[in-house]
Design a binder for these strands. Structure first.
Lengths: 233, 233
DNA sequence: CACAAACTGTGTAGGATGTAAAGAGTTATT
DNA sequence: AATAACTCTTTACATCCTACACAGTTTGTG
């Protein structure tokens, strides 16, 4: 029934064991996940290896396997921990403003833990924080008048947009410096005229730090316009 | 100048060496990349390790380093190879139909090589196929009346939407079977009411194979509506 | 033509990774 | 007091990426 839910996730939901016999556990899935988050924040996702997390906690690598069945499960827990609880959003605002707040909050969270986007999850989220975000979003869209099915797919749409936006910003921030120049170095003369034109117009020379805010709201509003038409139909 | 462009990518653009002295190379970046694509298609991205690709070609692991400086560079080449050349799109169609075709073609390509989404690129694309797709897209949006800057960001938007759509489909196809049930097993009674409601409505029980087409065009049209308003302004 | 230079693919080696299995120690229950 | 259950550790292994030194082959030069 719920055997398919990884042990680590069940622990996050607060499943505590009953009469236990041995020594008390020195760690918990939550502290392990938080250690992983800290490492990933500071030195990238790769630093959050089993050995790395264990050392950071002052334990052996293998000790983690008492709490987490695999690295994949650790990463699930890390993602949930990094996301944190969803924001409180005043119900007195219009649904549009509410969803915007929701999305902006996600931008902030993912922006603070960008490695979350690198984690390849084998299944849709099951952690308490992830699901709380989802619940909040569904509530907003439900009150906006969308039927559950539409609300769900719309929320995934918005969530995907946020992630895409962050991922893009990162890609152009990390290895994007001088991308335009490298492009120029590679493009054969006369080939790919539209790209060459954009390049000549300096489209890709911009400081990627303007990118965020304006661009983000342009796209988000575009999506919300569509939702609005759908909702009032 | 173009020293920052990985050797492997320059090779993809057809950079050939001049008077070479030793034996003729038995391989090429392209054949290596194609071998990697084949392995990744059949057994997942992890199978496209240096050792895996080399063995599949009948060479030593280290031999690949004559062509490719690192695994990251191999993956860049693989991504470009998997993408392949962009589709021919009749200019007689309206721009909207053209961009839809472009997006659908990308869905097909990425759907055939889903591991592309797992590859973490350190920089925006520089390969010939990637850039050809970009050029095609920019052409379509330029003819639609968008200024280069807007055309670029819009294209990234659409591209991101496509990727997000595929990634989502995969996530719910891979580990999504029975997700609704696992959710039910994990959700505490009374908590997260909107999610519980959606769950009760069977929103997440659907066969994820209906997901693709309808859902995809719903979102895409929504985006294109926005673009259209922007273009005719 | 002989020789050196440049290039090819190979062999070996080392550090890091994820995790299986067995062991030693600690606590609670019987 | 004895046993069962649980803790963390130790050891081990397969696999991964890649640095480096080597042997062989082709080309250009003196």
């Amino acid at each position: 029934m719920d055997d398919d839910v990884p042990r680590a996730i069940r622990a996050l939901w607060g499943a505590q064991a009953g009469g236990r016999r041995g020594p008390k556990p020195a760690l918990s899935v939550r502290t392990i996940a938080e250690a992983g988050v800290e490492l990933a924040d500071r030195q990238g996702l790769a630093a959050a290896s089993m050995a790395g997390v264990a050392k950071h906690l002052g334990f052996t690598t293998m000790s983690l396997y008492r709490y987490v069945d695999s690295k994949a499960d650790l990463q699930m827990a890390m993602v949930d921990a990094a996301l944190g609880p969803p924001p409180e959003i005043s119900l007195r605002l219009g649904w549009r403003k509410q969803l915007t707040t929701w999305a902006e909050a996600e931008v902030v969270r993912l922006g603070a833990h960008p490695w979350v986007l690198e984690v390849r999850l084998s299944s849709p989220p099951l952690g308490p924080n992830s699901l709380a975000w989802m619940d909040r979003g569904l509530g907003i869209l439900g009150r906006a008048g969308l039927r559950p099915q539409r609300a769900a797919s719309t929320l995934l749409f918005v969530d995907g947009y946020v992630r895409q936006h962050i991922a893009l910003g990162l890609q152009y921030a990390d290895g994007g410096a001088g991308w335009a120049d490298r492009l120029r170095g590679v493009l054969p003369e006369g080939d790919l005229p539209h790209l060459a034109n954009a390049l000549a117009e300096g489209v890709f020379d911009d400081d990627p730090s303007d990118f965020p805010a304006d661009e983000f709201h342009y796209g988000l509003d575009l999506i919300l316009d569509g939702v609005e038409r759908e909702a009032t139909r």
